[in-house]
Nucleic acid binder design. Structure first.
Lengths: 201, 201
DNA sequence: TTTTTGACTGTAGAAATAAAAAAGTCAGAA
DNA sequence: TTCTGACTTTTTTATTTCTACAGTCAAAAA
């Protein structure tokens, strides 16, 4: 059974490589299989369908994300420092996995199955919980004034994601945002983040 | 010539009525003409093409918007009160003219001609200037700390528009946002607005 | 001269259809 | 238990046809 899990991981990693370059919809099960030098039915032996594979991919990516976030949190001592670092982490993940359209609703119909939508909402909730925890720490430390930590974390994340969503909407309609757009997003997120935290004091 | 301007206004108002219900793309020049009991070439006598008419419509709507904003500003004395009232005004306009997709980039290809895009950017800049003016007042009053008023106004408006953009992206994919979504947007905008202003003190 | 119109044209987008590609299955081999 | 070649079914894409709309014009009305 441990061998099976290993194979599953291998397939997920192979899928991610393709997804990063071509997106989910433009990657076929055959391509993933060929990359790994196995047949398509082998893939279907480990994953009942493509959606399940994508689900596995999303789980993997977010597990990496949360691991990184938690590791980074430990090394920071002020809430400003902490959230500033988080902006950077989110930005890196956003850039790396942009083709998977993991941020926000599905622009094209990449992830529109019920299962994927649900998984994505779970991750969003987990992210909100994580940020709420960080805010609660800051409240307990007296760094910021007492507020509903979860509600505030959700608003904070919405404001951050809103910036991204807005910039992409206005920006060039290429399939990939330009270097300059990316920089603008990052800067605005940092600025907004700073003002937001200050507004919580 | 004053008669001509009157006719133009009448056409614009007729066009707005149709646009509000069916959107720009699903409204034909013939329908607008029929509503006004004139022929299509009459419309083309006053407007060289449909884009020009849409441009006229946009000018009218934003002129109403800015008029209302300026009137409202006069009756408020704190920056919190002022921006809170502005959130409400923007929300009303957003709701009323939703079908024109005036907020953010063109979701479907409603306004994609160069001229319309330019007009829209002009309005956005005007709005930023207006909000910058309000912020500058607050700075001069000592209500908030000194900052680059224009840059801050732009960030503020982006954060507000970002909330809208994000909620619409996640929400139901009907052609019109639900009552509940609208309420959520408004609430989040108010909350974010309050924290933002507090963060500027 | 200014404004309006009926009758027209070319084009852009919708609808329909055909072709291609990809998801998913299965009997059987390793 | 894990894997495969050969297959079927569904989805996507490309192509064509058709329709409805934007925009024009010569001429009439004001």
């Amino acid at each position: 059974m441990v061998e099976t899990d290993k194979k599953r991981e291998l397939i997920i990693e192979g899928a991610i490589k393709r997804f990063i370059h071509y997106g989910i919809n433009k990657t076929t099960m055959n391509e993933i299989a060929d990359d790994l030098s196995v047949s398509k039915p082998s893939l279907y032996y480990y994953f009942p369908d493509k959606s399940s594979l994508v689900l596995g991919v999303i789980d993997k990516i977010f597990s990496d994300y949360f691991e990184l976030m938690e590791k980074d949190q430990a090394s920071k001592n002020s809430i400003e420092e902490c959230l500033g670092a988080f902006v950077e982490i989110r930005h890196r993940f956003f850039q790396k996995y942009y083709m998977l359209h993991l941020s926000g609703g599905s622009p094209d119909a990449s992830l529109n199955s019920d299962g994927l939508r649900a998984a994505f909402l779970t991750m969003k909730a987990k992210n909100a919980d994580f940020h709420a925890k960080v805010l609660q720490c800051a409240i307990d430390n007296g760094e910021i004034a007492p507020v509903d930590a979860l509600k505030t974390a959700e608003l904070y994340l919405d404001s951050q994601a809103g910036i991204t969503s807005l910039c992409l909407l206005h920006g060039n309609k290429e399939l990939f945002p330009s270097k300059k757009e990316m920089k603008t997003i990052l800067e605005k997120q940092h600025q907004l983040s700073k003002i937001f935290i200050k507004g919580l004091k």
